[in-house]
Design a protein around this nucleic acid. Structure first.
Lengths: 234, 234, 234, 234
DNA sequence: CATGAATGAGAATTCATTCAT
DNA sequence: AATGAATGAATTCTCATTCAT
C-alpha cells in the first residue's frame, strides 16, 4: 500500500514521440529498462513522490515538470533521465494505484447481514480510505487525465472493472434484489467520490463518523444489513 | 458539485500589451454584458455550445480556444468579443449548471419507505441523470478546473452545500439511523460518480436498469425502504 | 526559376508529430492548406527567403528557427503559423528545387558533336549554374538533411532519377560507347559538386572559364565532341 | 575534399563548470595524447569505429555522443577520457582520411591517350572507390561539418588543393585544351559525388560497370583518350 | 580505467491574447 | 460584427559535459 511498495515494475516505457530522426533508432531515450542502481532508484522515488505532491496541489494538466523537479530537488535533465515525460511518470503512479486497488478489491470477505458483516465491511472501507489518503492525488489526477481517447480510458475501464468485479461477487452473494454489477459500480462511485469531496473540499468529516455512516448505508442498502434505528443493531 | 476547496490558475499567460484606459479597471472583460442583438446572441450560443463539445472531448485544461472557435466556425477575434477568456466562458456554463442543480435539489419531495417514496426517488434520480446527460461536460470540467485555490472552489462548495442541504433534510426526515449530512454527501457522491463512470468508463448501462438499481440502493440504504426480494416491494 | 516562382503549392503539410492528445484531432495545426491572403503570402515568402539565407550560412542542422525568424523579422510564433517546423519549411523549398531541376533536365536539346552541340550544352550548363546560384543553399542542405532513413532519401532519389533520366536520353542518342545512365549520373555529379566547390570553397572561378571548361569536358567525354587542341574546334 | 570555406560551430554547449588549473590552458582536452596501453588503444579504436557507424547512419550533426557510446558499448564518461568532444574525435578520423587522400592523389601515374593510360586511370579510380567505400561516412560528414567558419574549411581547402593539385599536373600533361586546374576540380567533383550518389541515393551500380564508364568519360574528356565506339579502343 | 548519474544551457513548440483591416 | 495575422511568454525536451564512486 505504501508508495515504496511499487515493487519490480521499472518503467515499461511510453512510446516516445517525436522521432527527430536521431533518436528514432535509439529506441526511446529516458528511463525504460535501464537497470538502476541504488542511487538511481532513490532518485526515481524522489521524482515519483514529488509528482504526487504536485499533482495533489495542481492536478495533472497544470502540473509542470518544473514543479516536480523543484520539489524533488533535482534538475530538469534528471527528470528526463527517468521518464519520457509527465505522462510517462504518471503512468507509473497509476500502475501502482491500479495494482493496489485490484488487490484491495479482492480483500473484501463475505459480508453477511449481521454485525460480523458490518464489521468486515467497515474494516474494508477503512482500508479504502487509507488507500485514498495515500493515493488520492493520483486517483484524482487520473480522472483529469482521462479525457479524450488516450489509453487512460482503457486503464481506467480495466481497473474499474477489476475493482467492481470483486465487489459484485460479494454483493450478488448477499443481495438478490439488485443488479450486482450496477450496484458494485454505485458502491465504488460512492466511496471514491465521497473521499474526493472529503479531501478536496472543506468537508473533512471525522473518520469514524464517516466510516460509520458509509458502512451503514452500504450494509443496509447493498448487503441486507439491518436498518439502524428500526432494527437497532447495537 | 464535483468541485473541491481549491481552484485553478495555471499558465497565467502574460496579458501581453496595454490595457486601454477604461478597460484597465475592469480587468479586461471585453464583451459579456453588452446588449446583444439577434446575431450576437446566436454567435454567443454557438460558442457556448462549441465549448461544451470541446470540454466534453478534451476536458477543461486541454481545451483550446482554438478548438472551440473551430467547432463554432468562428474566428479567434470573435471569441474575445464575447468572452474575456476561456475561464470566462466556462463561468457562464457553470452558472447555468449551478442553477439547474440547485433547483433540482429542491425538487425532491418527501421520500417515504413505501412504494410512493420509491417512485418519487426514482423520478428524481431520472431528472438528475437527464441533467448529467446534458451538462455532463461542464460538471466534469468543473471538477477538473477546481484544483489549486481559485474561486471555482468557492462556487463548488456553495453549490454542493446547497445541493446536499436539500437532500439532507429529506434523509433526516426519513432515517434517524445515519448522520444525514454525511449521508447526503454520500448520496450525491454516488449518483454523480456513477453517471461519470457510465459515460467515461464506457459502461453505458441501460437507463432503466441503472435507475432501478440506484433507486433501490438509495431507498433501502437511506430512506428506510423495504429490502427488495425479502420484503418484496412490488 | 526565381524563388517567387514557387507557384501554387501552399504547403502540403508534414505529418505533425507529438499528438499531445489535444491537437490529435486538430489534424495538424500550422500552415497546411489555410487559404492565405496577401499578407499571409508575403509573410510566408519572407520566411522561405530568410530560411535560404540561414541554411546557406549554417546548413540545415545548425540552422535555428530563431535565426530564420530573426532574418525574416518576424516572431517565433509566426513561424509556426506557417510551418510545422524547420523540416516542414525545408520541404517546401526542396519541392521548389525539385521542380526546377526536373524542368531544367527536360530543357536540354539534342547535343551533337559539332559546334552547335557545344553551344547548346554550354547554354544549358549556364542555366544549371544560375539555378545553383539561386538554390545552392537548398541543394547543399538537402544532402545534409538526407542522412538517416527519412523521406529525404526518397525525394532525393526521385529527383536525381528524374534529372538524370532526361540527360541519359540525350547521352544515349549521342554516344553509344558508354552506359548512358551511369554517364548521366556522373554528369550530374560533376556539375553539382563543381558548383558546390565553387560556391562553398574559396575557389570562385570565373564563370566563363568554368563554363568553357566544363562544357568542353562534357562535350568531349560524353557527347563525342571534338577534342579541343587536337581537333581544334575554334 | 567535400569541404567548403566555412566551418561548423553551432550550439556551443556551455562548458558547464570549472576548468581545473592545468587543463584550463589546454582548452579542455582530456585524453588524446596520453600514452595508451593495449586496452586503452582498443577502447579508442572501438570509439572511432563506432563513430564511423554513427556518422554513416546520421551524419555529423545528428550524431549523438550517446549513440557513439552505445555502439561502442562503453560509457559516456569513457568517451571523454579519450576525446575532448565529438569534434575532437571527428578530427582524428578526418586526419586519417586526409592522409589517405593525399597519398592517393600522388599515386596517379602518367595517363596517356592509349590503352595503358586507360588502365592506369581505371586502376586509380578503383582505388578511389575503395577509399570511398571505407571512409565514405567521414567524407560525407566532413562536408556537413564544414559550414560556417571553423577550421574544417581550412582543412578541406588544403586537402582538396593537395588532391586536385596532383591531378591537375597529370591533366595538364595530357590535355592542352582545358584549364587543368578547373578540370581537376571537375574530375574530383565527379568521382566524389558519383560515389556519394551511389551509396546515398540507392543507385548501387555494379562496380565494374561504374568503373568502366567513369574511366571512359574521364579518359576521353580529360586525357585525350580515344572515343569509344568510334575509335574502338579494345 | 570505467561507469552511471546529474546538470543546465539551449532549442523547439504551444497557445492565450491583441490588433489592423 | 467579424476575421486573419502576429506576438511572445511559458513550457517541454535534448544532449554535451562533468563528477563521484
Amino acid at each position: 500500500m505504501s508508495v515504496s511498495g511499487r515493487g519490480a515494475s521499472p518503467r515499461k516505457r511510453a512510446p516516445a514521440k517525436k522521432a527527430t530522426g536521431a533518436n528514432a533508432a535509439r529506441g526511446g531515450v529516458p528511463a525504460q529498462e535501464r537497470e538502476l542502481r541504488a542511487q538511481g532508484k532513490k532518485t526515481m522515488r524522489k521524482l515519483l513522490d514529488a509528482a504526487m505532491v504536485v499533482f495533489d496541489k495542481r492536478g495533472f494538466h497544470a502540473a509542470r515538470v518544473d514543479d516536480i523537479v523543484k520539489v524533488a530537488k533535482t534538475s530538469h535533465g534528471t527528470f528526463y533521465l527517468y521518464f519520457a515525460n509527465k505522462e510517462d511518470l504518471f503512468r507509473a503512479l497509476v500502475a501502482d494505484v491500479a495494482e493496489e486497488m485490484t488487490s484491495l478489491a479482492n480483500a473484501l470477505g463475505d459480508v453477511g447481514p449481521d454485525e460480523a458483516g458490518f464489521l468486515e465491511l467497515r474494516a474494508w472501507l477503512g482500508r479504502f480510505c487509507d488507500l485514498y489518503d495515500h493515493y488520492g492525488p493520483v486517483i484524482r489526477a487520473w480522472a483529469e487525465a482521462d479525457v479524450d481517447d488516450s489509453d487512460w480510458g482503457r486503464m481506467g475501464t480495466e481497473t474499474t472493472r477489476a475493482f467492481t468485479g470483486g465487489l459484485a461477487r460479494r454483493i450478488a452473494a448477499a443481495n438478490k434484489g439488485v443488479d450486482a454489477e450496477i450496484a458494485a459500480v454505485a458502491f465504488v462511485a460512492m466511496i471514491e467520490r465521497f473521499n474526493y469531496y472529503n479531501v478536496s473540499r472543506g468537508l473533512r468529516y471525522d473518520r469514524d463518523a464517516m466510516l460509520e455512516t458509509l458502512t451503514t448505508i452500504v450494509h443496509t442498502g447493498l448487503f441486507g444489513g439491518a436498518r439502524p434505528g428500526k432494527d437497532a443493531r447495537r
